[in-house]
Design a protein around this nucleic acid. Structure first.
Lengths: 244, 244
DNA sequence: TGCTTGATCTGGTCTGACCAGATTGGTAGG
DNA sequence: CCTACCAATCTGGTCAGACCAGATCAAGCA
């Protein structure tokens, strides 16, 4: 459900991003020609072009006719969609990005939840209970917690009746999907998370803005801290990338 | 500076989106095959594929191997980047989207400005003054106000030291670029806007969070109301799209 | 009626070709 | 020795056509 790209295109996009990272290319630098990339990656030029069309649309690269392919921004400085793509591809970013994502999530989600308290309909409420139930089931069944978590938070935000806010938060959620996968390996965390989610729904049901706001902050901040701890402890191997 | 896509790819993307709109395709509906699209649009299949790669990456379409191309979401329900693309292409959306964008902008921008008040450096401040000056010059020279406005607001947000928030707000800004173009045709509005911007910088310089917050709300809400009035008055022709 | 089978359609990928500018290297002229 | 000009080369943009392997579905056989 997550991978948006075709196998080969996705593969080539990944290869290209890796190339950029590996060669420490900076904004304005020129990439090898399409023909050379296709040779280097062992795919046809048409495949390279598809990947470049995607990178272009994401404003990561810029193709200048008769000239070459240039890096529009550093890999870490594209659009949000670009970040999601990188997260999907398993590329990591520096800690500052993680902190910024957390902060942005708290900001957007807190306000969204306030709106949800004001505007939620009974339909939203039953949807929330349903999603909450699905969440609990996923814990029982040992299913995809990261996915269930994303779905729950998005349902929460959706109750705020602002589709743009939902779209804004979606990439922020998807971005931390990878981290969450490891995060939910702990049973204690899974259950604490479920308890938090119950509180969320209760707050929205009671239209208690203050409670909801406090909950988000604590929930997201705690989760972020845990993930950070996990990253430092478990995976020095997976934690570094270029920081210019 | 805005158009991110190559001529032909952009052209085909536009044609495809128009096709979807014209035929009132809904989520899950199937588009014509690549071969038929290429024939219909009068371009090679490879060009269609590039466009589809972009639409795929934006999660607007989904290509199922050996099956067909399907609409992942209604055109109005893609990612933020997709909305920007549509705005760039001159496609309009329903009023609810406009309202949601305004609300989301206020939420994100208010919090970003609060952060800016706390964290802005002297470098940020001089950058802001510089951007403000450029803004005033653009008014004098009769330049691209929409662009200058976007740049100013992004500089404002950037002072909050959260790159993710900047990236979040960028599409929201770009999205309303079209509307802004007409908006800034009024001289009165141009000057009121400049005055507002001066106040913004002053508030951030004084680290006055409350003032900054009040300013954003009033500034964005007023602008949105004006644009709405303009849309209702001037262009019934340009205001409707499908609302399902 | 029900099941099998093969023609057809679809996206995925590759090869190779041509175009028109941009770039660049070398050579002819000063 | 240096300058100026021109042609070979390189680049992205686009097109045409081909093959593959599943998916689909209708026709035909049991």
């Amino acid at each position: 459900m997550t991978p948006p790209l075709n196998s080969e295109t996705s593969h080539t996009v990944r290869k290209t991003l890796e190339f950029v990272q590996h060669h420490r290319l900076a904004k304005g630098d020129r990439l090898p020609s399409e023909r050379e990339l296709s040779e280097r990656f062992g795919v046809a030029r048409s495949s390279v072009r598809e990947a470049l069309a995607v990178l272009d649309a994401m404003r990561i690269t810029e193709r200048r006719p008769k000239s070459g392919i240039y890096l529009r921004n550093a890999v870490e400085d594209g659009g949000l969609e670009a970040l999601v793509l990188q997260a999907d591809l398993g590329l990591t970013f520096d800690p500052q990005v993680t902190r910024d994502v957390t902060e942005a999530r708290i900001i957007c989600e807190e306000q969204a939840l306030r709106l949800a308290c004001q505007r939620r309909t009974d339909a939203d409420l039953s949807k929330l209970h349903q999603t909450l139930h699905a969440y609990a089931s996923t814990i029982q069944a040992g299913g995809d917690m990261a996915e269930a978590d994303v779905q729950f938070h998005l349902a929460l935000v959706a109750a705020g009746q602002n589709r743009i806010l939902v779209r804004t938060l979606t990439p922020l959620m998807l971005m931390s999907r990878r981290w969450r996968e490891r995060y939910f390996e702990s049973e204690a965390i899974r259950h604490r998370s479920l308890a938090d989610h119950r509180d969320f729904v209760a707050a929205i049901e009671a239209r208690d803005e203050a409670a909801a706001a406090t909950l988000v902050r604590r929930h997201v901040e705690t989760a972020a801290a845990d993930v950070r701890a996990l990253a430092e402890q478990g995976g020095a191997a997976a934690s570094q990338t270029n920081t210019t």
